[in-house]
Simulated assay, not measured.
Amino acid sequence: MFGNDRIPIVLLTGHLGSGKTTLLNDYLSAADVEPALVIINEFGEVGLDHQLVRQTSENIILLENGCICCTVRGDLVDTLKELHDDLRSGKLAPFKRVVIETTGLADPVPVVHGMMNDFQIMLAYELTSIVALVDAVNGCSVLERYPEASRQVALADRVCITKGDLADAGAIDRVQRAVARINPSVDMTRRELGLMDRSLFERRFHSTTGVSDIEHWLGRAAGSAASLHGAGGAIRSTAIIRDRPVTWDTVSHWVDRLVARYGPNLLRVKGILNIDGADRPSVLHGIQHLFHPPEELPCWPSSDHRTRIVCIVDGIAPEEIQALFAEAEAMPSPMGV
Results as ranks from 00 to 15, higher is better:
M1N: 11
F2H: 14
G3N: 14
N4H: 09
I7L: 13
P8H: 07
L16P: 01
L16Q: 09
K20R: 14
N25F: 02
D32V: 03
P35L: 10
P35T: 09
A36H: 03
A36D: 03
L37N: 05
F43W: 04
V46I: 15
V46M: 13
L52S: 07
L52T: 14
T56C: 00
N65G: 09
G66N: 06
G66A: 10
G66M: 12
T71P: 03
V72D: 00
G74F: 08
T79F: 00
L80M: 10
K81L: 14
E82R: 14
K91C: 00
F95Y: 15
I100D: 02
I100E: 04
E101P: 09
T103L: 05
G104R: 13
D107S: 08
V109A: 15
M116T: 12
M116N: 05
M122V: 12
L123E: 15
E126F: 08
S129P: 00
S129E: 07
I130C: 08
A132W: 06
A132K: 07
L133N: 11
V134P: 02
A136S: 15
G139S: 10
G139M: 09
L143W: 01
R145E: 13
P147Y: 10
S150G: 15
R151C: 06
Q152W: 11
D157I: 03
V159H: 07
C160I: 15
D165M: 04
L166R: 08
L166C: 14
A171H: 04
I172Q: 06
R174I: 04
A178V: 01
V179Y: 08
A180F: 07
R181T: 08
N183F: 03
N183G: 02
M188T: 15
T189R: 10
R191P: 00
G194D: 04
R203P: 00
F205C: 14
F205G: 01
T208H: 12
W217H: 12
A221M: 14
A222N: 05
G230P: 07
G232S: 13
I235M: 11
A239I: 01
R242A: 10
R244P: 00
P245T: 10
V246T: 12
D249T: 13
V255W: 07
R257C: 02
L258V: 04
A260K: 14
L267S: 05
L267K: 04
R268A: 02
L273F: 12
N274A: 15
D279G: 11
R280Y: 02
P281L: 07
V283S: 01
L284T: 05
H285W: 00
H289I: 00
F291K: 08
C299G: 03
D304G: 03
D304I: 02
V313Y: 04
I321L: 15
Q322G: 06
L324A: 11
A326W: 00
E329L: 12
A330I: 06
G336L: 11
